[in-house]
Design a protein around this nucleic acid. Structure first.
Length: 294
DNA sequence: TACCAGGAAATCG
DNA sequence: CGATTTCATGGT
C-alpha cells in the first residue's frame, strides 16, 4: 500500500496510513477461524507459528508481540496490504446497486492470504456447520495436535497441526475433535498432502489445475475448493457458493441455481469475483438476507 | 423436538 | 445421467 508509515517503538509496530481496511470486517467476515477478539477490541491469532495481537485505531494498525521484520515478512502479505482495494471496490460498485450496498457495508474487508493446509482443513470442516462450531473444531485440532508455541497474556497458543502429524493419526483420533464424518476426510487429506507437496505449488499453477488437484481430494467439492483457492492461493476469480451466497443471489438477483450464479459471477465480476463474493456473503450473513423475509 | 449450519458422497429413479 | 438422501455434531 502506498503511503504506509511503519515504525517500531517500545516493542510495538505501528503502521499508519492504512486505508480501505477494517479489522472487524476482515476477521469477522467468515474467511478465517482462528482470530479472537479481546476486551480492548484488538484481535489475537496465530499465523506461521507467530502469535500476533493487532488493534486498529482509524488509519493506524498497532501490532503487539511482533517486530518490523515480521511485519514485512509475514503480516504485510497476510493482511493483503499491498493491494489497491479502492480500485477494486470502485469497479465492482459500478456493476449494480446491490453490490454497491454490500461494499458499503463491508468496506474494510481484506482477503487474507492464509496458509494452504490450514485453509484446506478448515473448509473441509466447514461443510454443513456453523462458523462458531468450525472455530471450536479448529481450535480443538490445534490444542490436541498442534505444536505448542507459548503463552501470550496468560493464554496458551498452538500452531495448526502439520499434515505429517495428522497423517499419523487415524480418523478416530481426529474425530475426538468432534468433526464427525469429516474426520476421515481430514485423515486422508493429511496422508495425501504429506506424500505430495503439490498443494504448496498451486498458487503458481493455473486456476483450473489448482481446482483439479483440490477436487481430487476425498471430501473436497466445488465450494470448499473455491474457498481454498480464494483464501490461500490468490485465485481471485473464485466465487464460492454456499447457503448464504445462494440466499443473497436468489433474494437480490433473482438467480435460482448454482450454475446460473456461477455464470453470472464469471460474466459480471470476472477477475474480482472473490472480492464480490465476500462482500455479498458478509452483507447477507450479518443482515440475515433471505433467512425469512430479508 | 425439529431444524439449521460457509457441503459432499452415496444412493436413487 | 440429474435429483434426492445421508452423514456427525452443536446450537436454537
Amino acid at each position: 500500500m502506498k503511503g504506509l508509515d511503519v515504525k517500531e517503538k517500545d516493542g510495538l509496530v505501528v503502521v499508519e496510513g492504512v486505508r480501505d481496511f477494517n479489522l472487524k470486517h476482515t476477521f469477522e467476515c467468515g474467511q478465517c477461524f482462528r482470530w479472537s477478539k479481546e476486551e480492548d477490541g484488538s484481535y489475537t491469532g496465530v499465523v506461521r507459528g507467530k502469535i500476533l495481537n493487532i488493534k486498529q485505531e482509524r488509519e493506524q494498525l498497532i501490532f503487539r508481540n511482533s517486530t518490523r521484520e515480521d511485519f514485512y515478512e509475514v503480516w504485510y502479505d497476510y493482511l493483503d496490504l499491498e493491494r489497491n482495494y479502492d480500485q477494486i471496490k470502485t469497479i465492482l460498485a459500478e456493476k449494480d446497486p446491490i453490490m454497491k450496498r454490500a461494499i458499503m457495508f463491508g468496506e474494510g474487508i481484506r482477503l487474507l492470504n492464509q496458509e494452504e493446509w490450514e485453509t484446506l482443513v478448515s473448509f473441509i470442516i466447514s461443510q454443513n456447520r456453523s462458523i462458531s462450531t468450525i472455530r471450536k473444531n479448529v481450535e480443538s485440532l490445534c490444542e490436541r495436535y498442534g505444536k505448542y508455541i507459548g503463552k501470550y497474556e496468560g493464554k496458551d497458543y498452538y500452531e495448526f497441526p502439520l499434515p505429517e502429524v495428522l497423517a499419523e493419526k487415524c480418523s478416530d483420533d481426529i474425530a475426538e475433535c468432534k468433526v464427525g464424518y469429516r474426520a476421515q476426510y481430514i485423515a486422508r487429506a493429511a496422508c495425501s498432502i504429506r506424500d505430495s507437496k503439490e498443494l504448496y505449488a498451486l498458487e503458481k499453477s493455473s486456476t483450473a489445475d489448482a481446482q483439479g488437484f483440490l477436487l481430487n481430494l476425498f471430501g473436497v467439492g466445488p465450494k470448499v475448493a473455491n474457498c481454498v483457492m480464494l483464501f490461500s492461493m490468490k485465485k481471485h476469480e473464485s466465487f464460492p457458493v454456499d447457503v448464504w451466497v445462494m440466499r443473497v443471489m436468489k433474494e437480490l438477483y433473482g438467480l435460482n441455481n448454482i450454475k446460473e450464479i456461477q455464470e453470472f459471477a464469471e460474466k459480471s465480476f470476472k477477475q474480482y469475483g472473490g472480492f464480490a463474493q465476500q462482500y455479498l456473503f458478509y452483507y447477507a450473513r450479518e443482515n440475515g438476507i433471505g433467512k425469512s423475509n430479508g
